[in-house]
């Protein structure tokens, strides 16, 4: 177990290193932060001074060396948008909000998707299945941006049940979490449905039925347990997708004070260092999510040996 974890973490480190390198190259090659930082009529000298300030005037190889040296020490540079602040501090300040939102969203998604998938599978091909499938397809095809505004208009403006934006009261999390959860729920429900149909068709289900076991017991205690691994895989993948992208859209729409909305600030301000820190922190998180998922596999299915 320990050995397995160490090996996974070592692979994770390699992944983070590769991501960092990619981020370094992309930010250095594609962007020119000095253009965004300075007024439009800034002189060539001013632009050069900013480049020198950021170390962008040095050869790429040298910049990369400095970058790696700092990275190892946990120094991801200072923000240009918020001068004098370490970008890592800025990201870590906002990270709890993002983790809270995404975790609530994935739990919500499972709460919606698992029952929906089971209902659909039990009556596969019937009207209930078709309705459940339509609902889940609607969910998974709605873009988060559009869905977010729809939820704001419906539950914020018309019904006035929830605040339209912000994070200053506990109920503020409901709408952004729903905007993240519904498309994800659609996907997990599809996965739940198809694996459940597979399981229901297996011989052991027939045996269980012939022994006189009730349907609920058969489905919940036997079939559902066997569906856990694929659903877990899907959920972990969806969670990573939220963290790595969807949360940016949803946090921006709902003015949620997490890393996602800060990503948009960083982009608008062309804060290269901050963007770099965000990508590296999120990449690290995703590596962690994957390791945790691997551990969970062996918890939910003792047949899977972690070695």
């Amino acid at each position: 177990m320990i050995l397995f974890l160490l090996r996974r973490l070592a692979i994770g480190l390699v992944v983070i290193f590769l991501v960092s390198t990619a981020v370094f190259l992309v930010t250095r090659v594609v962007t020119s932060p000095e253009k965004a930082y300075l007024p439009i009529d800034a002189s060539v000298e001013q632009r050069e001074a900013v480049r020198a300030d950021l170390g962008l005037d040095k050869p790429l190889g040298e910049q990369y060396g400095v970058f790696l040296g700092d990275l190892v020490q946990g120094d991801l540079g200072d923000s240009y948008w918020q001068p004098g602040k370490s970008t890592l501090t800025l990201v870590l300040e906002r990270l709890p909000s993002t983790l809270l939102l995404n975790s609530v969203a994935i739990v919500l998604a499972l709460l919606i998707a698992v029952p929906l998938g089971i209902i659909a599978a039990l009556k596969a091909g019937g009207a209930v299945d078709r309705v459940a499938t339509t609902i889940s397809l609607l969910g998974l095809s709605a873009p988060q941006f559009w869905l977010g505004f729809l939820l704001i208009l419906l539950f914020g403006v018309n019904l006035q049940w929830f605040p339209t934006s912000g994070a200053d009261r506990p109920s503020s999390i409901v709408l952004p979490a729903l905007a993240l959860a519904l498309p994800t729920a659609g996907k997990i429900a599809q996965m739940m449905r198809s694996t459940m149909i597979d399981e229901l068709g297996r011989p052991y289900m027939l045996t269980a039925e012939s022994k006189g076991m009730g349907q609920t017991y058969r489905v919940v205690r036997h079939a559902l347990r066997n569906c856990t691994v694929p659903v877990l895989t899907q959920s972990s993948f969806e969670y990573a997708r939220m963290l790595a992208g969807f949360t940016v859209v949803v946090e921006t729409v709902f003015a949620w004070p997490g890393v996602g909305s800060m990503t948009v600030n960083a982009l608008e301000q062309q804060d290269l260092m901050l963007l770099q820190a965000i990508v590296i922190v999120i990449a690290t998180l995703i590596v962690l999510v994957n390791v945790i998922t691997d551990i969970l596999y062996s918890v939910v299915d003792p047949r899977i040996e972690v070695a």
């Binding site: 209902i119 609902i135 006035q160 049940w161 929830f162 009261r169 506990p170 109920s171 409901v174 729903l178």
Partner: peptide
Amino acid sequence: VLGSALSLAIAIAACGGDDDATSTGGG
């Protein structure tokens, strides 16, 4: 099915609704 989906949505809504009912009477 539609009914149960709706009541689920309302239940979720109601859970959160309690929190701000006291502070601002809804949004």
